[in-house]
Structures are given as C-alpha cells and as structure tokens.
C-alpha cells in the first residue's frame, strides 16, 4: 500500500495526542497528575494540538474535504465513520476535563467527582478512537498484513507509549512528574515493541491467503503468470495499492525502527531515571524525539509492507 505522508502523520500525531490525554486522565484518577500550570498548560495544549493537527492532516488527503460532515453518518457499518464520530465526541469530555484541571483543580489528590468522571470519559473515548483508527485497517480482508488482531494492539500500545514519551519529556523539563511518567513510558514502549516484533514475525511467516489462480478463476494450484497488463503506464490501482518495498530495505528500516523507537529511548529513559536535573531533561527529550522517529518509520513500514490482492492482477502470484 502507498505510504501517504498525510496518513502517516495523522496516525502518529493523533496517536501521540490521544496517548497523552489517556495517560493524563489515568494519572488524574490515581492522584498523580501534577497541578503545576507550567506542566499542565503545555501538556494539554500539545495533546490537543497533536490530535487536531492529525485530524486536519487526514482531511487533506480527501478529494472533497468540505463534505467531511457526511463522514459522520455511517457509524453503523463503517470504522472510518466511527473514528470520525469518536474523534469529535472525545473533544467534549476531554476539553471539559482539561478546563476543569487547568482552572478548578488545586489539589491533585482531590480533583472532585465531576473532573474524575470527565477523566474516566476522556480515557475511554481516547481508547475507542485509537481502536477505531486501527480497525479501519484491521477490517480490510484484501490486505492480509492488516487483517489481523495485533494491528489494533499495535496501534493502541504505540499510541500509549508515544504519548507517555512526550508527557515524560514535558514532565522532566518542567520538573513536575519526577520520573514516574518516564517509567510508564519505558514499560509502554517495551510492551509496544514486543507486540510489533511478534507482528513483524507473523506477517513474514504468514502463508499466502490468495493466489493468482483464485483471482482469475483458474484451477486451484494452477500456476498463473501475468503476461500483458491492460495498460502501458501505471494506473490508480498500481499507484495506490501496488507499492512495493524490497525486503532488504524493509529489514534495514525495521532495524532503524528498533534502534530509534526502542533502543535509544530505553537507554535514555534508564539513564534519566538514574540521574536527575539537567541530565534527566536531556535524556527524556532524546527519548521522546528518537522514539517518535522510530514510530514514524514503523508506521511507514506498516503501509509499505502491506500487500493488496489487486496486485495479483499486476504480476504477484500470491498475496
């Protein structure tokens, strides 16, 4: 599948934003979300900014962005519609939660029942929105690398880990979270990359699901090779769904993703947790920047390594 920059940016950016909001709602519920305005203001502004920028970026790749309200109507059958509805619905409780925390809560241990309820709603809606994003891909049968359960767990865990990394960096810079969020990010990141490692092994070892013989109605097991294409120049189908990344480049990029997304942040976070002051700030920032770079590479691979059954008509013998 063609790795469109707008969709990569959207899923990483809004994933990080929802991860931050989810973590902040959980921290609020366990009495560990700081009320220091130097921490809370940038955290909420950046979280909402990332979510909103991501959603706007996803509108950019539409043919008719001005009709986007129509996309909220088919939530009964369409995961894309559900994602849109949930993304907009999340603004309500999470916005009120942010306003409550910024303007009314003075004691982190005692935020009061209303802000508590808003935090619960925020956390649940963030999970539901990111899950819907993942199901847009995980519900597509023609793409075996996406039609898997671990696509959802991968999206959810990476969203959480990337949000924790950024919140940990803001916390370190403002001195508001004293390492706790960084420890959460460390665990989240390891869990996410264990899921991704299993996913990558899974798609590599998966048996082909459909053959060119089945795609053309020939006898089962018959070898069917593409001889002539209907057209001389690539068409929409080939440009959109025929994207092909060489396995050796894929493997190299996977190593980049492991090193930047997991190795560097884990080392930095451990160093940061063991030290304090300036070193902890530098470590948390390195972890967040490098981690996001690794997750962008992971997301690029998620699209580039996905193969579509339509390629069976354009030279592939199995998918």
């Amino acid at each position: 599948m063609h790795p469109a920059y707008s969709v990569i940016f959207f899923t990483v950016s809004s994933g990080t934003g929802y991860g931050m909001l989810f973590l902040m709602s959980v921290l609020a519920l366990i009495g560990r979300l700081s009320v220091d305005p130097w921490f809370t203001w940038p955290s909420f502004v950046i979280a909402f900014g990332l979510v909103t920028l991501g959603l706007l970026s996803s509108l950019l790749h539409l043919g008719h962005p001005e009709r986007f309200l129509k996309a909220l109507t088919q939530w009964r059958s369409s995961w894309l519609s559900r994602e849109g509805v949930l993304a907009i619905a999340t603004y309500g409780p999470s916005g009120l939660f942010a306003l409550g925390w910024l303007f009314f809560v003075t004691d982190a241990q005692n935020p009061g029942p209303i802000v508590g309820l808003l935090a619960v709603a925020t956390g649940l809606l963030c999970i539901a929105t990111v899950f819907s994003t993942s199901m847009i891909y995980a519900s597509l049968k023609p793409i075996p690398q996406w039609f898997r359960r671990d696509v959802s767990t991968g999206y959810l865990s990476l969203s959480f880990a990337s949000g924790a990394l950024l919140l940990g960096a803001i916390g370190a810079i403002t001195g508001a979270t004293a390492g706790f969020v960084s420890a959460v990010a460390l665990v989240g990141l390891i869990v996410a990359f264990v899921i991704k490692a299993r996913y990558w092994r899974g798609i590599r070892n998966a048996l082909p699901t459909v053959t060119a013989a089945s795609a053309t109605g020939m006898d089962q097991g018959a070898r069917v090779r593409s001889l002539d294409l209907p057209h001389t120049e690539p068409n929409y189908l080939q440009k959109e769904m025929g994207y092909h990344v060489a396995r050796k480049h894929g493997d190299k990029l996977r190593r980049v993703s492991y090193v930047a997304g997991l190795g560097v942040p884990v080392l930095a976070l451990i160093v940061g947790l063991g030290s304090g002051g300036g070193a902890a700030i530098v470590a948390a920032v390195i972890a967040a920047v490098s981690g996001h770079l690794g997750i962008v590479v992971e997301r690029w691979l998620f699209f580039a390594e996905a193969t579509h059954t339509v390629t069976l008509y354009y030279g592939a013998e199995s998918v």
Partner: peptide
Amino acid sequence: CIGCKLCSWACP
C-alpha cells in the same frame, strides 16, 4: 463521496 478511497482498499 468525499474521496477517502477506503472503498477501493476494501475491494479485493
């Protein structure tokens, strides 16, 4: 149609 192209992804 908003041109999101998802239907073309969903068609095998």
